[in-house]
Design a protein around this nucleic acid. Structure first.
Lengths: 162, 162
DNA sequence: TAGTCTGTACAGTTTAAACTTTACAAACTT
DNA sequence: AAGTTTGTAAAGTTTAAACTGTACAGACTA
């Protein structure tokens, strides 16, 4: 059995973990609550309900609901089905690192792809002008090359990673 | 000579570039103004003063001043010295891609390093408790491993990149 | 030395993001 | 069918970030 004191210190460590680990996740385009929520689920062995989470983080149920859906969307968290359970249950996906990198890299690659298309259509727009747009044209090219280099690195990561 | 109409369309393209390209830079922990400012300098062949930038972006001089200092800090922009010039002049650094990656990767690596230290000190704290903290200890280990894997990938990038 | 100009510190304001409360639809229970 | 319970939508509030205007120190000018 644990003393109250020990219990308290253990809870304290848990909170420390949440605040520290979530800092890293925030660097990956997760917002504060999403990051904290993910760490909470990561630290908890049992799947948790929205009310459990709300309890741990001291925020509203709605906040839990919207954040958990983002995490589901990113494929970092999964819904667990347990027969007879009224409330929805969630847990962090296993293979923390792989899941995380995949999510992150994919989001990047998608975004970069969109941006290259935008830049190319700006380039096209520019060519319609008979004005001598040499200079800006060259800049657009450089920007496109920049994006393509980034895409390469991220593709490299996703290769290296599996 | 350019007609007013052409002039206008060219300016329009410039603005499009600023808003599109800056979206990418915002994904790298630059905020909106910093990103727009960098693109503005990137598109401009001549070095620019704070007043020039203020003109292009339609924001206050103070906003320009603080953002440019962040960009200097990140080593994405440099001050240009021209004899006799009263106002400070800035331009985007060349080698867009290299400079950018270096800045970004370094910031990541530093942050990750800090985080690993934090986690290790949490681990130490936990060991002081004679409570059976097996479970949480295992989680902390996993989190540290996660961070180390991230560090590896980023080190990989910085190798691949030069 | 008095006057002008430039960059930035600081206080105050605006804008956007995050969060909460209330309300309700859908699913379930009795 | 009436009554609960759960998750989420929507409106309204709070909090934090971004921005502006004012003021001023330091550098330059005449």
């Amino acid at each position: 059995m644990m003393t109250n004191h020990e219990q308290e210190r253990l809870e304290n460590i848990n909170n420390l973990m949440i605040s520290e680990f979530s800092k890293t996740l925030e660097m990956f385009a997760l917002n504060k609550t999403e990051a904290q929520l993910f760490v909470t689920l990561f630290l908890n062995d049992e799947p948790m309900t929205l009310d459990d989470m709300k309890e741990v983080l001291g925020k509203s149920k709605t906040a839990m609901s919207t954040s958990i859906r983002t995490l589901l969307d990113y494929n970092l968290v999964e819904k667990v089905f347990i027969k007879g359970a009224r409330k929805d249950l969630y847990q962090a996906k296993k293979d923390l690192y792989e899941k995380f990198m995949k999510t992150y890299v994919n989001r990047w690659l998608e975004a970069l792809d969109r941006q290259v298309h935008s830049l190319e259509s700006i380039e096209k727009e520019l060519k319609k002008l008979d004005t001598n747009g040499e200079n800006i044209s060259h800049k657009i090219h450089e920007a496109i090359k920049f994006h393509q280099s980034l895409e390469e690195v991220f593709q490299q990561i996703s290769k290296y990673d599996q």
